[in-house]
Design a protein around this nucleic acid. Structure first.
Lengths: 238, 238
DNA sequence: GCATATTTGTCCGTATGTATA
DNA sequence: CTATACATACGGACAAATATG
C-alpha cells in the first residue's frame, strides 16, 4: 500500500556500469532497499505473482528486476522454482572477505597522494557512523560502515572496482540480518575507520593497506564467531 | 519449435554464481561465442527484432540474454537506444588492467603452497598457447592466454574472484578485434607464462606476484601502444 | 506411487514514449 | 517540426516443471 508514489530522484544512484533502464531499475532499487532493510529475510521466496501485484508491475518487468538483483548477489535464481533472497553460508562469508582483502587493500596500496577534498566521502561516513552509534541505531552504523568501504574503493577511481565492491558489500549486508545484535560487530571498527582516514590523509598508503588487512581479518573473525554462535534459522527452507 | 532439439549438456558451463536459466542462458552463450569470435564487431548494434528472428526466440527471452551479457561487460545498454557490442576505449583499457593487477597479483600473493596437480590447468594453457603459436593461429594464442589467467585466479579457489576475472577477461577479448595482428601482443608473453608456472611450482608466491605485476604492466603498455597506433574506426557511431 | 494444483518459463500482440531522420 | 523506427512496458496465453494432497 502507498508504496513510493513518485520516487522522484534516487539521487546518487551511482550507476557505474549499469545505465538506469527505467521501471525495472526502479523496482530493483526498491527491492534492494527492502531486502537490505530486513524485509524479506534471507531464504524468503519472492513470488512473481505476489510481488507483481504489490508493486503494480507486470511479471515481465519484475523478472528483469530479479535479474538485476541476482546479478548483485542479493537473490538466487533456481530453475522452475523461483527466486529466493540469498542466505550466505560460512563458505560465502570466507570467500567474500577473502576477495575484500585482495580488492580493498590492493586499491589502497596502489593509491597516490590525494587532496583532502577526495576524503570527504570517507569522513562523512565516519561521522555518520559515530552519530548513529550515539543514537544506538546500530543498523545505521552498519550502513555507514558499508558506505565507508565503498568510498574507500572509490578513491581508486576504477568503475569496475566500484562495481565489484558494491556486489561484495551487498552480500555483507545480508549477513547483518542473521545477527540479533549487530553492535558487537561494528563498535570495534568505528575507531579504526577514523584511523584509516588519518593514514590516508598523511599519504602513508602502505601503512593504511597493512592496517586494513588486519582490520578485515579481525572483522572476518568477529562475524565468523558470531555466525557460528548463532544458528541460522531463517526461513527454514533448505 | 524445432530449435536445437537436444542441447543435452552444456558440459562444463562453469556456472560460478549464475544458475543456468534455460533458453536465455543458452542464447547468451551463443552470442558470447559469436562476439568473441569476431562476428558482431565492437560498436555493432544488436537489434532485438533482427536477432530474435535469426535465433528464433522472442524479444523477452532475448532481452534476458542481453542482460546477462551486459552484466559480463560484452554489451552496453543505452536507454531507449538498444544494446551495442561494447567498444572499450583507452580509459576502459587502463581500468581493466588496473583491476587485473590488483586482483591477479593479490590472489597470487595470498596463495599457499599447492600440489603440482593444481597447476595442470596452467600448464595446459601454456602448452596450448605454444602449440597455437607454432601453427601461427594467433587468435588461439590469445584464447590460451586468457585461459591461462583465468586458471591463475582459479588457484585462489574463490568463486567471486573467478567471476570477476571472467568479466575482465571478456572485455580484454574485445580489444583483440581492434588489432589486425595480435601476434606482437602475445608472443612476448608466451615465455613469461611458463616462467610464472615455474615460480608457482617452487612455491615462491611473492616472486610470482612481483613478476606478474611487471608482466601486466608491460602487457598494458603493449596493448596501449598498439591501440594508439591503430585508430579504432569500428561502427563509426559515437 | 499417482493425480492435481500452483508456479514458473516462454511466447505473442499491443500501446506508449523516446530518439533519430 | 513532423514522421518514422524502435525500445519499453503491459497483459494474456499456453507449456513445462515443481509442489502438494
Amino acid at each position: 500500500m502507498a508504496m513510493t508514489p513518485s520516487t522522484p530522484s534516487a539521487p546518487s544512484t551511482s550507476s557505474p556500469l549499469t545505465a538506469p533502464s527505467g521501471t525495472a531499475e526502479r523496482i530493483a532499487s526498491t527491492l534492494r532497499r527492502q531486502i537490505t532493510a530486513g524485509e524479506h529475510p534471507p531464504g524468503t521466496r519472492l513470488s512473481e505473482e505476489m510481488l507483481g501485484a504489490r508493486l503494480q508491475i507486470s511479471r515481465n518487468t519484475l523478472r528483469e528486476a530479479f535479474r538485476l538483483l541476482s546479478h548483485d548477489g542479493l537473490l538466487m535464481h533456481e530453475l522452475h522454482r523461483g527466486v529466493f533472497v540469498r542466505e550466505p553460508n560460512e563458505a560465502d562469508l570466507i570467500d567474500v572477505f577473502h576477495l575484500r582483502r585482495v580488492l580493498e587493500c590492493g586499491v589502497v596500496r596502489s593509491l597516490t597522494r590525494l587532496g583532502p577534498e577526495r576524503l570527504t566521502p570517507l569522513t562523512d561516513a565516519v561521522l555518520a557512523g559515530q552519530s548513529a552509534a550515539e543514537r544506538d541505531t546500530w543498523h545505521e552504523v552498519g550502513t555507514a560502515n558499508i558506505d565507508f568501504h565503498q568510498a574507500l574503493v572509490a578513491l581508486g577511481g576504477s568503475r569496475r572496482a566500484d562495481d565489484t565492491i558494491r556486489r561484495l558489500l551487498a552480500e555483507v549486508r545480508l549477513f547483518f540480518h542473521v545477527f540479533p545484535d549487530p553492535r558487537e560487530l561494528f563498535e570495534p571498527f568505528l575507531k579504526r575507520n577514523a584511523m584509516l582516514v588519518d593514514m590516508l590523509e598523511r599519504g602513508d598508503m602502505t601503512a593504511a593497506a597493512d592496517a586494513l588487512e588486519t582490520y578485515l581479518r579481525d572483522s572476518e573473525n568477529h562475524v565468523l564467531q558470531a555466525y557460528r554462535r548463532q544458528p541460522v534459522d531463517a526461513g527454514g527452507r533448505r
